[in-house]
Design a protein around this nucleic acid. Structure first.
Lengths: 178, 178
DNA sequence: ACACGATACATCGTGCACGATTTATTTTAT
DNA sequence: ATAAAATAAATCGTGCACGATGTATCGTGT
């Protein structure tokens, strides 16, 4: 009402902006990848799964869910659809019959295009290219700060972070003991 | 393999890190809000809708979809569920019979808790509080850079941004002319 | 007055995403 | 060796999210 603004208000505005930004960036990356993906007749999550199977040659549902940070049920669903599309095959593991070995279908293993496996952040590369190095560093620095603050809070409030928080720990140069 | 790293590789690493960060932050904000939300027996998108209805007293589906950056069908679904929960009511607009007036149900309008409408980025405020002002600024700066780069790219490739890109234009101090 | 395009909303189909539960198998503790 | 705990997948139910399509209603142009 008057132009005396409390300190809390600034933080609130910042939080709002950052919240919207996260949402915006998330939607953008999804939408952007989606176009590339659907040229191949698949979706983004499907490409991510394929990429991980490709990288590991053979994986279990559990491993996929850890690598891609999705629940097992989600992964299970996606894998099913990819099998229906004849892009993946599922064979029971001999060592441990609870496990299931997921691998590329012979057909896909041939013309894997190499690109399909790694186009995951194709669009973000192009975006970063629009910024000069110092700006890119500013972006990265901001992200790191925010992410580490979020992780701190998650730990503080004991947020169940089973296979969730452990993602970005490598990005820092220092990876000294937990 | 050797430690001579091409420039492109750095950008690629950055893109990967930023991509994962966006995903991480998105999941975190979702998860974090969800806890607060489900204490009230609703979901995050539902709270967002309620918040917007509360703020505008009466809105159409179209308006909601613009404010919340969701498609009309998504909003329509959510509103339906909220009506089923007796939290919203729907009355046909008299001026224009194509429109539908969405408003809070009398019951909800009473104990609207005031908090429920504005807890949207509650958790991010707490996160920012863990950073000192200069760090917060760094985060904000990084976000702004990234967001504006993304917007630039979207415009460049004529990405259909009907009610999608216009979001974060206000965050800057300059808001001159539409 | 009437046809035509635009608009607002609802509906349908698909896929993602998660939690909860179930089933089969392995591991462990006794 | 057997019961009990633990683990890996699958399955079910719910909700979000979107595009495509259908259905009224409104506005215009002629």
């Amino acid at each position: 009402m008057c132009d005396l603004i409390v300190k809390g208000d600034l933080i609130l505005k910042r939080a709002e902006f950052i919240g919207e930004s996260i949402d915006f960036l998330h939607k953008y990356t999804m939408k952007s990848l989606q176009k590339t993906a659907e040229e191949h007749g698949v979706t983004i999550p499907q490409i991510r799964v394929i990429g991980d199977v490709y990288a590991h040659k053979t994986v279990s549902i559990k491993q996929l869910s850890q690598n891609l940070k999705m629940t097992q049920s989600t992964v299970s669903d996606i894998v099913d659809r990819l099998i229906a599309k004849k892009l993946l095959v599922k064979t029971p593991n001999q060592k441990d019959k609870r496990l299931v070995d997921i691998s590329l279908s012979p057909r896909l293993a041939e013309d894997i295009d190499e690109s399909i496996a790694e186009l995951t952040n194709q669009s973000l590369v192009a975006v970063l290219d629009l910024l000069d190095p110092s700006e890119q560093e500013a972006v990265e620095k901001g992200m790191k700060l925010l992410v580490s603050a979020v992780k701190e809070k998650m730990l503080a409030e004991g947020m169940d972070n089973h296979n969730f928080i452990d993602i970005l720990y490598f990005s820092e140069k220092d990876k000294r003991g937990k």
